[in-house]
Simulated scan of single mutants.
Amino acid sequence: MKQTEQLFVQAKNDWDLEKLYTDLASTKGKNLTPIEKLHLRGLLCGYSPADIAEKRKKSARGVEVDLCKTLYQYVKTLVDRDNEKVENWRNICQWLEDAGYKTQPAATQSQLSNPIPVEAKVHISNINIENQSIELQIGILLQLPIPLPSNSSNKKPAQ
């Protein structure tokens, strides 16, 4: 896998990328380039154009110009906002979310009907400060009670 393909892969967890790539390709008239896909994933992960440029070791202005000439135009057409100005890169994410491309996030513990109590303990065992760097040794203990299924096999046999 190329280094650029490894950037912003977390977007696939929250967005229907395949449908989005297909729909944007239809709008564009041909498939998105690997760089267009990379920039789109970066935006969907919450990175600004400047952040994307920094991660790619490219010019921030160059990435911004590229986005304005390509992805922003495709997205505006796709979500029927051709006459609107992209005031901020976050508009793109919001418009795509409003259009249904964002997948539903997994249920969080607070959304579960029977939340599992979790106990966590953190222990810092060593702190070493040398040459403007800090080295920490941290131990983490998580305790997750897991209920056993209740069934008749747990009962003592009758005597």
Rank of each mutant, 00 (worst) to 15 (best):
E5C: 03
D51Q: 11
L78H: 03
E87L: 12
K55R: 15
N91Y: 02
L136F: 07
A106S: 08
Q104A: 10
N154P: 08
L43I: 14
T22K: 13
T22G: 09
G139R: 09
S152D: 15
D82G: 14
N114Q: 15
S152V: 13
E36A: 05
N83A: 14
I116R: 12
K28R: 08
G46Q: 04
E119A: 14
S152R: 15
V118Y: 05
K155S: 14
F8P: 00
E84I: 06
K55S: 04
Y74M: 01
Q104F: 07
Q94K: 12
D14C: 14
K2H: 14
Q104Y: 06
A50V: 13
S153R: 11
N83Y: 15
G100R: 03
A106R: 13
P157W: 14
L38A: 06
M1K: 15
K156F: 15
E119N: 12
H39L: 09
V86D: 01
S150E: 13
Q6A: 13
L78G: 01
I129N: 04
K30E: 05
I134S: 09
N151Q: 08
L20M: 05
K2D: 10
Q132V: 10
K55T: 06
I52W: 00
K121Q: 07
K69D: 09
D16I: 02
N31D: 10
Y21C: 05
L17T: 01
L32S: 03
S59H: 07
F8R: 02
K102L: 04
R61L: 13
W89T: 02
E119W: 10
P149I: 12
K57H: 12
L38V: 05
L112K: 11
N151W: 10
S48I: 02
T22H: 13
K57F: 08
P157F: 15
D98Y: 08
Q73M: 07
Q132F: 06
T33P: 00
C45M: 05
S153G: 06
C93Y: 08
V65M: 10
P49R: 00
R90A: 07
L20W: 01
L7Q: 05
L43G: 00
S133V: 09
P117R: 13
Q137I: 08
I124D: 03
P157V: 14
Y101N: 03
L67Y: 00
K57Q: 15
